[in-house]
Every structure is written in structure tokens, then in C-alpha cells.
Computed example of a mutant assay.
Amino acid sequence: MKKREVKVAVVQSAPILFDKQSAMDKIDSMSREAAGQGAELIVFPEVFLPGYPRGLSFGARVGSRTADGRRDWERYWESAINIPGDETVIFGELAKELGIYLVIGVVERDQEFSTGTLFNSMVYIGPDGNLLGKHRKLVPTGSERLLWGQGDGSTLTVIDTPLGRIGGLICWENYMPLARTAMYAQGIDIYIAPTADARDTWQSTIRHIGCEGRCYVISCNQYATKDSYPADLACYDDIKEDADILSRGGSAIVGPLGDYVVEPLYNEEGILIATLDLAQVVQSRFDFDAVGHYSRPDVFQLVVNDQKQDIVRRKS
């Protein structure tokens, strides 16, 4: 039986960049703080573990890469995690202890083919401690393409839970109309949109998604300062002259008619708490349902390839 009201928490923070233990410690402490306020679903930002390397070039220019940049990337690779792996077990133990759902942005190391590929992923952990699913970002944005591989349609994940149907897309994937439609078509109620975009225009995006998808939108960004960057990074000079605040945040919660449930938080670390009334999701679809009565399948159709794309297929 679905709950009518769900208490959610959005964590706006950042770990020490490339420091896995720093991220794990913050996930533990801030989850406990949010659960202590009654949160049943707790969301952490895009690649919270081990941090979003905003401003770093990794020594890359068109046509060349530097040895120092490769060393920084190796450090990033070392701080990534496997899914499933030791860290997801720890997440599961925490979620089970607190009786919560956890959604965490992580850098995932490929385990199946080439261990040299990383993915921008988010993991879903249930209150029974189980790994419920993951999503890999379909298209890394701009220079991110040198850091992360492309996900496929097999992880366009929406999970049916007692709190509602939970899923989401990462950062600029949310600008992809067909990707959003694929999520709406799975009956999503609580749409999770972790991001690294702190611009005012991002707020327009999440409000549009709430109104278009007739769902709650949880947007989660890091609040990051230069203090969270290790000074011994080979490419530290990339951000040396930048402002102290590298990401101002802007985490927010939006309702199914596009209005703020919790307005954006800027320029500080914090936890946003809200109670979501899922009856409003049903009520909002009275006059608009993008993949239901307001669709025109005789005119428009979307084909989603949800098969895992393997580069190697072994015949027995």
C-alpha cells in the first residue's frame, strides 16, 4: 500500500575532492541528521562520492594530454567505487539501520569489460539494505566526456516503492525531452535530478519537469569551495585564481504543478526537508498527463532500447 505522505531530505554539501572516506563520512553523518528529522528518502548530489571536479582540466587540450593530468585522473579512478561493491554494502547497512531509502550520486568503475572506464551514476538503496538499482548518465556534458563513459537504456531506472515510484536523470540529461518522456512513461512520482548546475536557468528546468511530468522533483547540488580541493593535485593551478565558492548549490524541491515546495538554497551547506503529499501527483494529472490522455500515439511515438549494450558477447 502506497503512503500518502512522504518525508524527504536533500543534502547540499561536498566532500574533500577525490577523498572516498571523506564522502563516506559525510554520507553517514548527514543521513543520520536527516533521518533524525524524520526523513524517509534522502538524496545526495551528482557524483557526491568522490566529488565533482569542477574547474579541473586534467591536463587535456584538443590533441594533447599531460602526464600530470593523467596522474590526477588516476587519483579520480582510485576514488571511484564498484556497483555492487564494498561501499554499496556500507550504504545498505546505513539505510537498514536508519530505515530509509538512499539515493547517492557516485563515480562508478566499470567491472565487466574495461576497468579504465568510469561512469557518472546514481545508486538506489532500500530500507532493507538492498541495492535496488542504479542509473548511468547517458551523455556526459562537455569536458565530462573525457572522464566518464556513456550509459545505456538499461539503467533508465524507476523503482516502485511504498513511497511511490522513484527514479530520475542526472544534470543535463534532464534537457533531453525523450529521456524525460521515458521516465514519465514509467509512472514516475518522485523524480530525482542531481546536478552540478547552479545557474538560475536550472531552476526553470526543474520547475518545467515538475509541471510537465506532474511529479515531485528533487534537485540536489553540491555546495563546494576551494577548501574541499586537495592542494597537492597536479592540476590545482586550474582553480587557483577562481572564486572561493566553486558551486553555490541551488538544491530545491518542486511540486507536480511546478511550484516550489522548498525554494533553492544558495551559498551554504544544508539539508532541505519537506513532506510530499502524493495525492497531489494524482490530482495534478487531472488536466495533463504527458504519456496518457494528453499524448497522441497516432502522431508521436518513442522507442526506448532498454537492452544492456555489451561490447563483447560470449557464446557458450
Rank of each mutant, 00 (worst) to 15 (best):
K2M: 15
K2E: 15
K7T: 03
S13Y: 11
A14W: 07
I16L: 15
F18M: 13
S22P: 02
D25G: 07
I27N: 12
S31F: 01
A35T: 09
Q37E: 14
I42Y: 09
G51N: 11
Y52R: 10
F58G: 04
G59D: 11
V62I: 12
S64N: 08
R65P: 00
A67D: 13
R70M: 13
Y76C: 05
Y76D: 03
S79D: 06
I81R: 13
I83S: 12
V89I: 15
G92R: 03
L94F: 02
S114A: 09
T117N: 06
S121I: 09
S121F: 07
S121L: 10
V123W: 01
Y124S: 05
K137H: 07
K137L: 15
T141C: 07
S143Q: 03
E144P: 05
T155L: 02
V158G: 06
I159H: 01
T161F: 11
P162Y: 01
L163A: 15
L163V: 13
G164D: 05
G168R: 04
I170E: 03
W172H: 11
Y175D: 15
M176T: 14
L178W: 14
A179W: 10
R180P: 08
D189N: 12
Y191S: 04
P194M: 06
R199V: 02
R199W: 04
T201D: 12
T201R: 10
S204C: 01
H208S: 01
G210H: 04
G210I: 00
V217G: 01
V217F: 00
I218N: 00
Y223M: 11
T225R: 04
K226F: 06
P230E: 15
D232W: 02
A234L: 03
C235Q: 12
D242C: 05
S247G: 08
S251M: 08
A252M: 06
I253F: 11
I253K: 00
G255H: 11
L257V: 12
L257C: 11
G258H: 10
V262N: 01
P264M: 09
L265I: 09
S284T: 15
F286P: 01
D287A: 12
F288N: 11
V291S: 13
G292C: 05
H293C: 08
Y294G: 13
Q301K: 15
Q307C: 12
K308W: 08
Q309H: 13
D310V: 00
R314G: 09
K315Q: 07
K315I: 10
